[in-house]
C-alpha cells in the first residue's frame, strides 16, 4: 500500500536523475584523469596524451578499455572476498555522495517542476561526512586483504590520515553550520544567492576545509597511502585490471565530489554572481546554475592538480603533526571566533 501512495512520476523523475548524475560523475571522473595528464604535461613542459582521437580526447576510453581487458590477478594468500570488496566499497562510497548535492535550481519539464537534487535531506552535510568516512574502509579492507606489507602500510596510513583530518574538517564545518544554521545543502545554497557566499564569513574555515579535502582525497601533499616511491603503490600494490581501475577512479570521483562540496558549502553552489536569475526563465536559470557550479568545480579540480604537480608530499609524522597540532587547534579557534562574533551581533 505504501508503494501505491508514492507518486509514480516522482519515482521516474528521481530514477532518471540518479542515472544522469551517476553517469555524469563517471564521465567527469574519466575526463578528470585526462585533464590530470594534460595539466601535468603543461606543468612539466610536455605534450601529454595526444594519440587517441583528436587532442587525445579518447584517451580515457582507451585507458578504461585496457583496464577491462587486463588479466585479473588475485594473490594466492589474499582473502578473496575482501580483496574484491575493497575496490567495490571504495567505488560505491565515492558514488553515493552525489545524492545530496544540489546541481541546480528547479527545471520545468513536461509540466512538472523537477528539483535538480536527488535527495534534499535535512542532514545533507552529515550524510556527506558519513559516506566519506566509509570510503576509507574500501582502502583499509583492500589493503589488508592483499596480504602485502607495502599495502598494509598504505592502508594504515590511509586510515590514520583520514581519521585525523576528518576531525579538523568536522570542526571547521561546525563553524560554518553556526553561520548557516542548517544542515541541508539546498538551504545553504539558497542562503548564498547573489554572491553572498559563505567563504566571505568563513575564510579560515574554508582554508582548513580545503586542506582537509586534499587529505581526504589522498592527493599530494597527502598522497602517503599510495606513495609510489616508498610503498610502490600503497594500498593498490597488488591490484590489477579493473579493480585497480576502481581504486583510481574512486579517487577521481572523490576529487570531483569534494570540489562540488566545497563549491556548494563555501562558494554559493549553483549561484552565478552578477546574474539575476529571477529575470530569466526557470530552465535558463537552472542551466546557468549548472554551468556556474561546473565552472567552480573545474577551478577546484585544477587547483588539486596544480598542487599535485608542484609540491612534495609530507612524511607520516609531519602529516599527523599538521593534522593534530595545527589544523585542529586552528579549527577550534575558528569555531570559538565564529561563536563569539555571532553572539556579539545577536546581542
Amino acid at each position: 500500500m505504501m508503494l501505491l501512495s508514492i507518486d509514480l512520476g516522482l519515482v521516474i523523475e528521481k530514477l532518471v536523475l540518479i542515472v544522469v548524475v551517476i553517469s555524469a560523475s563517471l564521465v567527469i571522473a574519466m575526463y578528470t584523469t585526462f585533464a590530470e595528464r594534460k595539466v601535468a604535461a603543461i606543468l612539466q613542459d610536455r605534450r601529454g596524451p595526444n594519440r587517441a582521437g583528436p587532442f587525445g580526447l579518447l584517451q580515457p576510453l582507451a585507458d578504461g578499455l585496457k583496464l577491462f581487458f587486463k588479466e585479473e590477478i588475485i594473490p594466492n594468500l589474499s582473502s578473496k572476498f575482501l580483496f574484491i570488496l575493497g575496490p567495490a566499497l571504495a567505488m560505491m562510497t565515492a558514488m553515493m555522495t552525489s545524492a545530496v548535492i544540489p546541481w541546480g535550481d528547479k527545471i520545468e519539464l513536461f509540466g512538472r517542476s523537477i528539483s535538480l537534487q536527488i535527495a534534499d535531506i535535512n542532514i545533507g552535510v552529515l550524510y556527506v561526512f558519513g559516506v566519506v568516512s566509509l570510503g576509507v574502509y574500501g582502502i583499509m579492507i583492500g589493503s589488508w586483504a592483499s596480504n602485502n606489507k607495502f599495502s598494509l602500510l598504505g592502508g594504515l596510513r590511509a586510515a590514520s590520515q583520514i581519521i585525523s583530518y576528518e576531525l579538523a574538517m568536522g570542526i571547521s564545518m561546525i563553524a560554518l553550520l553556526m553561520v548557516t544554521g542548517t544542515l541541508s545543502l539546498k538551504e545553504m545554497v539558497l542562503q548564498q544567492q547573489a554572491g553572498n557566499w559563505n567563504v566571505i564569513y568563513q575564510p579560515l574555515g574554508f582554508l582548513i576545509f580545503l586542506i582537509c579535502a586534499f587529505a581526504e582525497c589522498n592527493r599530494t601533499p597527502f598522497d602517503l597511502p599510495e606513495a609510489e616511491n616508498e610503498l610502490i603503490g600503497g594500498y593498490h600494490t597488488e591490484y590489477s585490471s579493473m579493480k585497480l581501475g576502481f581504486f583510481l577512479f574512486a579517487e577521481y570521483i572523490n576529487m570531483f565530489i569534494s570540489s562540488v562540496i566545497m563549491a556548494t558549502l563555501f562558494f554559493g553552489g549553483y549561484d552565478m554572481p552578477f546574474v539575476n536569475e529571477t529575470l530569466l526563465s526557470p530552465n535558463m536559470a537552472a542551466l546557468i546554475g549548472i554551468v556556474a557550479l561546473m565552472g567552480k568545480v573545474i577551478c577546484f579540480i585544477f587547483l588539486f592538480m596544480w598542487v599535485r604537480w608542484t609540491i612534495p608530499r609530507f612524511r607520516y609524522d609531519q602529516l599527523m603533526h599538521l593534522g593534530w597540532r595545527i589544523l585542529i587547534p586552528l579549527a577550534l579557534f575558528n569555531m570559538l571566533l565564529t561563536g563569539g562574533v555571532i553572539l556579539y551581533f545577536h546581542k
Partner: peptide
C-alpha cells in the same frame, strides 16, 4: 630526491 619526496615536475624540468 625531489621525485622521491613526491614532487615529480622538477625532474622533467632539468631532464630536458
Amino acid at each position: 630526491v625531489g621525485v622521491d619526496s613526491g614532487a615529480y615536475s622538477g625532474f622533467l624540468y632539468v631532464m630536458q
